Simulated scan of single mutants.
Amino acid sequence: MRWSELDYLGCLHSERRGYEWVMAHHGGLTPTQAREAALQRYPYEPDDAPYRGLLFHDEAWHWAMLAIHGDRYVVEHPELAHPSPEYLAAR
Rank of each mutant, 00 (worst) to 15 (best):
G53S: 01
M23N: 10
E59G: 08
W3D: 15
G10P: 11
Y42D: 09
D7I: 13
P46L: 07
S84N: 09
G53E: 03
L39V: 11
R91Y: 05
D48C: 04
M1E: 12
L6I: 15
Q33C: 01
M65H: 08
A67I: 15
L6Q: 15
E5A: 07
V74H: 02
F56C: 01
Y42T: 13
T30H: 02
L88Y: 08
P85V: 02
Y87V: 13
H82M: 14
L80P: 06
G53M: 02
E20M: 14
S14H: 10
D71F: 04
A38P: 12
L29I: 12
G53D: 03
P83K: 00
S4G: 08
V74S: 07
A34G: 01
L29Y: 00
V22S: 06
E76G: 07
R91V: 07
P43T: 12
H69C: 11
Y87A: 08
A90Y: 10
A89N: 10
L9D: 13
E36Y: 00
A90W: 03
E36D: 10
M1F: 04
E20Q: 15
Y73C: 06
R17Y: 05
T32P: 00
E59R: 14
Y87I: 12
S4N: 07
M1T: 15
G10H: 09
T32Q: 08
A67H: 06
L6D: 14
T32K: 06
R91K: 12
L88A: 11
L66G: 08
P50Y: 02
L88M: 09
M1W: 08
A90R: 04
H69T: 05
